[in-house]
Amino acid sequence: MLAKRKMKSNELADIVGITTANLSILKTGKAKAIRFSTLEAICEALDCQPADILEYVEA
């Protein structure tokens, strides 16, 4: 989604208001949970729906 919007990770982190380290945790799937406020901010910055950035992977 970042590539589609031609946006860099640090730009997104700045817009959303999280650190690049935390954005990296989100991207690598190491995060245990995501706040609705963060999800909302990411969707707003990327102009997308939660389903566009979330994916269920069977363990």
Binding site: I18, I25, L26, A31, K32, I34, R35
Partner: peptide
């Protein structure tokens, strides 16, 4: 605390 740290 660990869970909280990994909640973004």
């Amino acid at each position: 605390e660990e869970d909280n740290e990994l909640t973004i």
